[in-house]
């Protein structure tokens, strides 16, 4: 015979209310994500299924949405622009961010650590338009002088700005996950005669790898989604990037720059929403890969 707990009599009323409230909070976050996806999808749906040549949309580099007699909606250059500037940014941000996190977590005195954390949090709070402004003025001049380039508003410029924006995220999440490694691991490894560096790469990094991976992916997600800084710093010119000094345009910057100028409900308007769906898909895939990688690590 199974004995079922009697909820009505065993639980105080307040417990039921609290549980209901928490349940609503959880469900609402799912609803919001689906709601956003549904809205973006709805705005672009009719042209996506009726009129848009999907293979041309993904593989053509010709983005002429305002041409009078031959409108072309090819986003290849924009996709490559987004990926190029993000990868270049991660190439700079990941080593710096993880290195800084290891320094703050393992080598800093407690006093210096507090100072560092405040500065890093301050860095994270700088609005992206300010980074864009720095890219437009300071970094522009710097790149022109250092590389003798005709113009400094390039993929390199944008990726430096993105790196500066994602480093604080990477540092603070990576530092948290390193700090979460129990001190007993450090003590055990030190008692075995491991040097500081051996403790870090043989014990701490394996123990914190999930958190470190999350830090890198959140930094990357921030880079992919960032709009204003890349709009201002990369030249905003539709172009397949061939070198760090190419000027480029990203998916996000295209939406930001053009959505205000188009007729509501028109073809161009809908295409911009389809770009939104594309961005959604990209971030979804990135998150999915992250989940699978983390699961793989846990089992392995």
């Amino acid at each position: 015979m199974r004995i079922q707990p009697n909820k009505a009599t065993n639980r105080p009323f307040s417990e039921t209310v609290i549980e209901l409230f928490i349940r609503l909070c959880g469900i609402s976050s799912i609803l919001f994500v689906f709601g956003i996806f549904f809205f973006v999808f709805k705005e672009g749906a009719s042209f996506l299924f009726n009129g848009l040549n999907l293979s041309e949309f993904l593989s053509s580099e010709e983005w002429y949405p305002t041409s009078l007699n031959n409108k072309r909606y090819g986003t290849l250059a924009l996709i490559l622009g987004t990926f190029g500037v993000t990868s270049l940014a991660m190439l700079m941000a990941v080593p710096f961010g993880l290195g800084a996190a290891i320094f703050v977590s393992e080598f800093c005195s407690p006093k210096l650590r507090e100072t560092f954390k405040i500065v890093i949090e301050f860095l994270a709070a700088i609005p992206s338009v300010v980074w864009g402004f720095i890219g437009l003025t300071l970094m522009n001049q710097l790149i022109i002088q250092v590389f003798n380039a005709p113009i400094g508003l390039t993929m390199l410029n944008g990726s430096i700005m993105l790196a500066l924006m994602s480093v604080p995220i990477i540092v603070s999440i990576a530092e948290d996950s390193l700090k979460a490694v129990p001190d007993s691991y450090r003590e055990a490894a030190e008692a075995l005669g491991a040097t500081k560096w051996q403790v870090i790469y043989r014990v701490l990094l394996p123990a914190a790898k999930n958190g470190l991976l999350a830090a890198v992916l959140l930094g990357a997600a921030r880079s992919i989604g960032e709009t204003m800084a890349v709009l201002m710093a990369t030249g905003h010119s539709v172009n397949i990037p061939t070198s760090p000094l190419s000027w480029i345009r990203t998916l996000t910057a295209t939406i930001a720059a053009e959505l205000g100028e188009v007729a509501r409900g028109g073809e161009h308007y809908q295409v911009l929403f389809i770009i939104g769906i594309l961005l959604f898909t990209i971030t979804f895939i990135v998150n999915l890969i992250a989940d699978l990688v983390i699961k793989g690590i846990r089992q392995g």
Binding site: E187, A188, A189, G193, A194, R202, V203, A207
Partner: peptide, 25 residues
């Protein structure tokens, strides 16, 4: 000096790697 601490601390490594840790360092 071999040290065994009061609460057992298996390092987050495989059993083999735990024992091979010190020789490897």
């Amino acid at each position: 000096i071999g040290m065994v601490l009061p609460l057992p601390v298996g390092l987050p490594l495989s059993i083999y790697d735990n024992v091979a840790f010190a020789p490897r360092t």
